[in-house]
């Protein structure tokens, strides 16, 4: 029986782990991998205090090494169900393991949103990618499309420009949402074309991706582009598929978990949620980490008073 189980090893979950161990709590982290969305960062992180510039990869290693210096149990696995029982919580994983705890922390962050274009699911891993940092280097000297003209899309283009031949950035809106700084940086890279009013319709190919079709919303015309890669960067949605019992927590319209932001408690006693999965507006590494600290310290009080 653990004092707490943390679901997710992003900045929120890793910080909760560090604080919980320092409080002497018997802690288990179950996560698909470490780092979460920090692993998706295509350019250096420039807003985590103490590091003027650090790559996602390096910041993750620092968090992970810090965590592993404590007495924490780690399971690299996927949680498929979180249940409440009389004494606390029951967590079931994909590899058929079951863990019990007095309290539980949901730190599962976000999953990339899909566009819903036909062929997107079919070609995942065969040209369609949600992780330019992972797969981008494989597309050297090829033409690719980035779907999404926000900061994530523009930063992906900056990273991809080190490898690929040509980049098309497709933005659904008539205006680009990326920051002026990112827009200026992208302007400086050669062979990048920004296409606004573009609604992705289809991803085509035989075995691997060969082309995409989009609707030019301004001229109401279908157009196609020959590309080998399609990087989808249209945002994230809360990763809560393992909460099969919706009465465990309250959710907002975006399906984010509602918590008391003072202590990260959900409406179920002993159940906490932290980081991007909660309804807070500010989705940042430092905020996720702070949530982790709040939850772990509150759990320590909760368990003493129980």
């Amino acid at each position: 029986m653990y004092d707490l189980i943390i679901i997710g090893g992003g900045p929120a979950g890793m910080t909760a782990g560090i604080y919980a161990c320092r409080q002497g709590l018997k802690t288990l982290i179950i996560t698909k991998g470490f780092g979460g969305q920090m692993a998706q960062k295509s350019v250096e992180i420039e807003n985590y205090p103490g590091f003027e510039k650090i790559s996602g990869f390096d910041l993750i290693s620092r968090f992970e090494n810090h965590l592993r210096r404590h007495e924490v149990d780690i399971e690299i696995d996927s949680v498929i169900e979180l249940k409440k029982n009389n004494n606390g919580f029951l967590v079931l994983t994909k590899s058929n393991k079951e863990f019990k705890s007095k309290t539980a922390v949901i730190a599962s962050g976000g999953d990339p949103k899909s566009t819903g274009a036909s062929g997107e699911k079919e070609f995942v891993g065969r040209g369609v990618s949600y992780c330019p940092v992972c797969d981008g280097p494989l597309f050297s000297n090829k033409d690719v499309a980035v779907v999404g003209g926000g900061d994530a899309g523009f930063e992906s283009a900056l990273f991809l420009s080190n490898y690929v031949r040509k980049i098309y950035i497709l933005e659904y809106d008539s205006k680009i949402k990326a920051s002026p700084a990112n827009q200026a940086l992208v302007k400086n890279i050669k062979n990048t074309e920004i296409i606004t009013n573009a609604s992705l319709k289809e991803i085509k190919g035989k075995v691997l991706v060969e082309s995409i079709v989009y609707n030019d919303l301004k001229h109401n015309k279908e157009k196609s582009l020959d590309v080998s890669g399609v990087f989808i960067e249209i945002g994230y949605e809360p990763a809560t598929s393992f909460i099969l019992d919706p009465s465990l927590a309250d959710f907002n319209k975006k399906k984010e978990i509602k918590v008391n932001l003072d202590n990260m408690r959900t409406k179920t006693p002993g159940l906490y949620a932290i980081g991007d999965v909660v309804s807070g507006k500010c989705k940042q590494i430092v905020v996720a980490a702070a949530d982790g600290a709040r939850a772990a310290l509150d759990i320590s009080h909760y368990l003493k008073n129980e």
Partner: peptide, 15 residues
């Protein structure tokens, strides 16, 4: 793998 892929690093560490 690729040098920038965190999931690859997790896999290698597991092995």
């Amino acid at each position: 793998s690729t040098p920038t892929c965190v999931y690859c690093a997790t896999l290698k560490q597991y092995l």
